[in-house]
Design a protein around this nucleic acid. Structure first.
Lengths: 234, 234
DNA sequence: GTTCAAAAAACGAGCGTTCGCCTTTTATTA
DNA sequence: TAATAAAAGGCGAACGCTCGTTTTTTGAAC
């Protein structure tokens, strides 16, 4: 029984999915037709239906494949983190996220496409419970940070999720939404300023303002004998 | 010469644009057809072409109208800010951004649609030079913050832009991308923790780590005699 | 009767999918 | 070993439907 070379089949599928990705992220799912995909992939329309029962099946397959790839990249990115909240590691981390966004802009556009044209069906859990995702991957590193003198007392997983989402957003705006240096500085400067801002906080030396209850119920105010700043009366 | 009531025309246009917005943000621009819009608006297909020369003209008109509305809302939101970086004002501000996102989810979906199906043509400047936008609207308030004792020394416009974008991102993920309490806590708790984190910083009492140059050139390192954490050697 | 808005029908092009045919590859048989 | 048959991949046209837009018809107002 004759059988076409297996890698010929895989090569055709790769070319079809690459062409589909490029066109879907340029025009949307419904804005792209099968004839264009076939032309870009240099196969016939009929050949596409050899591998994928429907146009939507092609979309679903490429989304699933890309998600798996991105999850792997994310885990690799995390595995190199050690002194997670030090400025040097934060700087390195933001640089890695930059690549994670800039080199895979099409992936993030797929997420937008899915939100609009597929009710976010295929990315529904992508952002779920991020602190817990980070604890399971970075548990020891996060615990280590928490034990260090000077740590702010916040949940390190929450802090890390905050940094991660903020940095991704920054690069998404720059890459996909024509941010065009939307914070008025270069990427590197924006990350440096963000790291400084987050490391030191808005207010220095415990001169925090309008302090009320703490979210974690533990209020280590007894350790601080700084005189309170007068409330605003103007 | 007979003439339809002017407000009847406006009412028809309002109904057409409302139906178009609802369907575009549910299915995408190309995933929505004129017949569906007509049905939802309870007008005929022909009537739509009375008011809009093309389907795309309808889209452009509704985007332009919604942007104007959102810019007005944003200015209103900013006008109530006084002690901008105090915890109480930050809390109030995040609550207002929550409404700005949750009550106008369709607007943000329009932004995604535009990025995918129209190469971000109609939102190209939405995020441009945000710190400068904030300085022009909140100059006095930002300057006031900068002069207060304990201020971190950062550019207040940059800090405010950072807060603004982070909070919008949080609510966009919750509302459009099924975040489903993606930071593991409620909206209010997430905002409280974020405000605390940003106010106090990751590290307290100037026990900052891996400190090198400061972006503003002023490095008060002389006050800190803490021994350095050993560098990684693994 | 005239004018205008709106409805409904029609038009021509484009769409996703299927079908018939061709080519290539391998197995079978003489 | 060569010829033939069978199977599978692939191509391109065709099908039936949908699409955006235009045209024709209808209804209302004056």
């Amino acid at each position: 029984m004759p059988k076409i070379a297996q890698n010929r089949i895989l090569e055709n599928q790769r070319r079809i999915e690459t062409a589909a990705l490029e066109l879907f992220t340029k025009q949307g799912f419904h804005g792209t037709n099968i004839r264009e995909i076939a032309e870009h992939a240099e196969v016939s329309v009929g050949a596409i239906y050899t591998y994928y029962p429907t146009k939507e099946a092609l979309y679903v397959t490429l989304v699933r494949n890309y998600k798996a790839h991105m999850e792997q990249l994310r885990d690799q990115m995390f595995s190199s983190l050690e002194d997670i909240f030090s400025k040097s590691d934060l700087k390195k981390f933001t640089s890695e996220i930059r690549g994670y966004v800039y080199n895979h802009a099409e992936f993030w556009l797929l997420m937008y496409i899915d939100a609009i044209e597929f009710k976010n069906q295929h990315f529904a859990e992508w952002f779920h419970n991020m602190p817990e995702q980070f604890r399971s991957r970075l548990g020891p590193v996060l615990s280590k940070a928490k034990r260090q003198p000077g740590w702010c007392g916040q949940d390190p997983a929450f802090a890390f999720a905050t940094i991660y989402l903020h940095v991704i957003t920054y690069f998404l705006i720059e890459k996909l939404l024509q941010g065009n240096r939307h914070l008025g500085v270069s990427d590197e400067q924006a990350m440096d300023k963000f790291i400084q801002l987050l490391s030191g906080g808005l207010w220095s030396s415990h001169e925090t303002r309008s302090l009320k209850s703490r979210s974690n119920g533990k209020a280590p105010v007894a350790r601080r004998k700084m005189p309170r700043v007068l409330s605003m009366t103007s």
